[in-house]
Design a protein around this nucleic acid. Structure first.
Length: 546
RNA sequence: CGGAGUGUAGCUCAGUCUGGUCAGAGCGCUUGCUUUGGGAGCAAGAAGUCGCAGGUUCGAAUCCUGCCACUCCGACCA
């Protein structure tokens, strides 16, 4: 109970983008003293986000979102409001992915939000996979009755709000494709989808989310399989280069497959609480949807054949993944390439007579920086000229994860220097550089930061991936020392696997860990499965999953 | 759907056991003054049908009944 008071207080503070220096509850001083005593951290050294990652990771995650002003829960349960800063991050991802997908030969189109119920019924596994989480529209009119609005006219056939669009796109493909000359067909759509979630979490699991879904049709199985793999690799490159996020490319086991897929490929990332999260997925659908939707073509030999299809997607879940992968106890950390703003200029104006000189210096610097580019795009620079106290403003940008904060006050103007705060350094640390030097080096600094985050993430993944040979070691790996309050533990456990589905299910039930994937890049001759004693066909990665 | 809990100001909460100077605090917001290389200080002010509907009572945030909403923990999931 006492903990709840603090949790609420922290959420409140963070949401308001305020300093976390004091408790906001009605017993502020007592709470503050208690916290300081418990943690042995003085109030001035207190990190911006509480609890810290170590103290309570899920709560920390929520607090980062609130402190960085990324999103909030809406009145509709399970649905989030993505706020401007959070949406700008998604737009950065979208823009770059869209570019890459188009370069890979796909064209954008848009299909309806509503799918006739009968469409969903066409593919048996697909029905089973999605039926439980579908939102259904049953009426098309509201009628005012005694001052209340009630659904009026029932639909002849209920409409399902798309949980994914294979079926309705398949129906269109059936019309569009007649000949082998129409293949391959490569379509992508940016859309929202709805999967009715019982336990929502911002960005990670919401009832409505935004994504991109690609759908392709091919003449041969081999070509479609190659396409599914190609798009997985495209995602992999995007994650590496833009998000500084290493992910293991692999295949899902039959039990974890997309409903209706023949093969499901995945990118599995490890975030700071050592849980795995799927960061992208690509499916080889075989002829399942082609048969269900009657997508056929005439081959060069004049034979009518079913096409082979793929589908693949990434969602706003990537924003959550990004947060959990890189952020720290002072808030969000954004790799420069996805940061909506890379450099924020903070004028420090104390006396009115200093104003003009400082504002001019800021404007000059902003103009100079705007002419420079990083990673092939003009630098994204913002001047924060709001008339509030310097310290508070500075912390706000720390929490928002902006890579570089540049302070310009009378001293800097006089000396022709800048005070630069880097998000990959402690929040109070400042580097003093001449304007000229900074402008010349800024691209290098951003490159260094981007690479630094990548290196750190790779090292993290490596140090928490363990090859495990015995059952005992496996259990030890996934068992916290403190059962009451489990500490951060586990990671990826790599073991030889014989491919036994029943065993996989048993481990899932007993240990709450699952096979995240069968890594694509692995050497042969993996050894003996520690559970069955049988020779392993390949190595698999086990992990706790989001 | 099972288990636990919570609804009081914009936010976080106190007050409920024991009905009556009980409409409260902190933060935020507004205004004024002070401060100014750092997540400011002081003062004043605006702000609530105490989740909703009944009931008990001279009197209900507080007791009773019903309803509603939300949160957390479990089964499904990008």
């Amino acid at each position: 109970m006492a903990r709840n008071i603090h949790t609420g207080m922290r959420r409140f503070l963070a949401r308001r983008g305020m300093r976390a220096l004091h408790c906001a509850c009605s017993r502020r001083k007592k709470c503050d003293r208690k916290w300081s005593k418990q943690t042995k951290i003085s109030m001035t050294e207190r990190p911006a986000i509480s609890p810290t990652r170590q103290e309570d990771f899920p709560e920390w995650y929520q607090q980062v979102i609130a402190a960085a002003d990324l999103a909030e829960n809406s009145e509709v349960r399970g649905c989030m409001i993505i706020k401007p800063w959070g949406y700008a991050i998604w737009e950065r991802m979208q823009r770059e992915l869209d570019r890459r997908i188009k370069a890979a030969g796909h064209r954008n189109a848009y299909f309806p939000l509503f799918i006739p119920l009968s469409f969903l019924e066409k593919e048996a596994e697909h029905v089973e996979g999605f039926a439980k989480e579908c939102a259904v529209v049953t009426h098309h009119r509201l009628e005012a009755t005694e001052g209340r609005l009630v659904p009026g006219a029932p639909l002849a056939e209920p409409l399902v709000v798309r949980p994914t669009s294979e079926t309705i796109i398949g129906a269109a493909f059936a019309r569009w494709i007649q000949s082998y000359r129409d293949l391959p067909l490569r379509i992508n759509q940016w859309a929202n989808v709805v999967r009715w979630e019982l336990r929502p979490r911002l960005f990670l699991r919401t009832s409505e989310f935004l994504w991109q879904e690609g759908h392709t049709a091919h003449q041969t199985a081999a070509e479609a399989e190659a396409e599914a793999l190609r798009m997985l690799r495209l995602y992999e490159g995007f994650l590496r280069e833009m998000l500084a996020l290493p992910a293991i490319a692999g295949e899902k086991t039959p039990g974890e497959r997309f409903p209706g897929a023949v093969r499901t490929l995945t990118l599995e990332a490890l975030v700071q609480d050592r849980k795995a999260i799927q960061a992208g997925t690509s499916h080889f659908l075989g002829q399942n949807f082609a048969r269900a939707n009657g997508i056929t073509f005439l081959s060069p030999e004049g034979m009518r054949e079913h096409v082979w299809t793929t589908s693949w997607g990434v969602s706003t879940r990537l924003v959550g993944t990004l947060i959990m992968a890189h952020s720290d106890d002072n808030g969000l950390v954004l790799p420069p390439r996805v940061a909506p703003c890379q450099i924020v200029l903070l004028p420090l104006i104390r006396r009115e007579e200093e104003r003009t000189a400082i504002e001019e210096a800021c404007a000059r610097l902003a103009a100079e920086l705007a002419e420079r580019s990083y990673a092939g795009e003009p630098l994204r620079v913002e001047i924060d000229a709001r008339p509030s106290a310097g310290g508070a403003k500075n912390w706000e940008w720390v929490k928002k994860g902006v890579p570089l904060r540049v302070e310009i006050g009378p001293r800097e103007v006089a000396a022709g220097t800048l005070s630069i705060g880097r998000r990959d350094r402690p929040p109070r640390e400042r580097l003093s550089q001449s304007v000229r030097q900074f402008v010349a080096e800024v691209e290098g600094i951003l490159t260094q930061m981007q690479e630094g985050y990548w290196d750190r993430a790779v090292a993290f993944q490596k140090s928490h991936t363990r090859r495990i040979a015995s059952r005992e070691e496996f259990l030890e790996f996934f068992t916290p020392r403190d059962a009451e309050r489990p500490e951060i533990h586990g990671g990826f456990a790599e073991i030889p696997w014989s491919g036994d589905a029943a065993l996989e299910e048993k481990i899932r039930e007993e240990q709450k860990v699952t096979i995240r994937c069968i890594p694509l890049d692995q050497e042969p001759a993996p050894g003996t499965c520690p559970f069955s004693g049988k020779p392993g066909k390949y190595r698999v990665l086990f992990g706790k999953a989001y």
